[in-house]
Design a protein around this nucleic acid. Sequence first.
DNA 1: CGAGGCCTTGACCGCGGTCAATGCCCGTGG
DNA 2: CCACGGGCATTGACCGCGGTCAAGGCCTCG
Lengths: 188, 188
Amino acid sequence: MISALKEVLAYISPFDDAELDRIAALFHSLQCRRNEQILREGETCTAFYFVQKGSIRTYFIDKKGNERTRYIMLDNWIGTALTSFISQQPSLECIEAMEDSELLFISHKDFFELNEQLSNWKRFYQRILEMAYAFQNKKIESLVTLSAKERYQQVLEENPALIQRVSNKVLASYLDINPETLSRLKSR
Amino acid sequence: MISALKEVLAYISPFDDAELDRIAALFHSLQCRRNEQILREGETCTAFYFVQKGSIRTYFIDKKGNERTRYIMLDNWIGTALTSFISQQPSLECIEAMEDSELLFISHKDFFELNEQLSNWKRFYQRILEMAYAFQNKKIESLVTLSAKERYQQVLEENPALIQRVSNKVLASYLDINPETLSRLKSR
DNA sequence: CGAGGCCTTGACCGCGGTCAATGCCCGTGG
DNA sequence: CCACGGGCATTGACCGCGGTCAAGGCCTCG
């Protein structure tokens, strides 16, 4: 179970086995149920998550009260409400489980202590930030150059698991289209 | 002249004077004229820039051939075509001077050598990435929650210098609206 | 078994994109 | 110095994508 975490960590930065043991020991487990809130709006994000099983998402509430999904994590992926996690200010983003899920998490304190002590962890954090930047960059490009239908087709090709496992309502907010429009797109 | 650079660096990471001297010595100067290309599409970005005077932007070309401005740097700000700079792959983004400009730049090689050697520079790079992420995050939020007019008003309030110094064509592509629409917005 | 949320479908409409015409500014060369 | 040309800004007419509102059916969960 922990080995999946180690594999992902080692994929991102070249940790040796001793480092992986040390790091894995800092992760704690967390079970949560479908629709359970892991981080509420206004709370400060003090954990960085690994999804062992299940799926979680981050989202914010727009001025009309609609949920806008920013980031979706399925099994074996990592992430958090990064803005609040970095700034340690109250978060505008929420984190929510989309399915019953088994998570591992490391606290902000341990995360940044590692960042002081372990050069491979600095490298890890740099790569997390670089990947987050690349992800956002691609999202912006999709938003400004693709139609609603093309954005849907892009996910269909590049990440079909999302379409199978995520509700239409959440998927629509992730693609920045209305549920009604998504429903029409799916039926051609 | 160099002191403005040092001030910005020290604002981002807590360098001491000796470190600032060492870093500043790695920056080289570059003059460029209005509309001059600093990085062309397909070239790999090997420099990180500081704008002493003038203004530059990064943009990419969409499938219809339109320029889409990603990032604008006025006097005393820093940046580059970050995706290519990080990956050292050919860039989809171009960099172009919008006015006659005086730049300083550090090479990719020196940048990442510092990143190995100087812990405050690691910190600097981390903060650059964090700020880049926050910037993108805000841009996505604006794109998905604000109308064209509201996006224009946001820049008008938060960064009025952009509207004064940047051509309507570029500003429009930065805001992701058509020049025609921007022209109509400006005249209420 | 009932209630509430989600999905789907229909009707309507408005924001902002597209195309076209005109005028202006500015840089360039004769 | 002026004449010309090209790019940019502006304005008008038109239109289509996708948002909004509403209604009905289905599934899930208490």
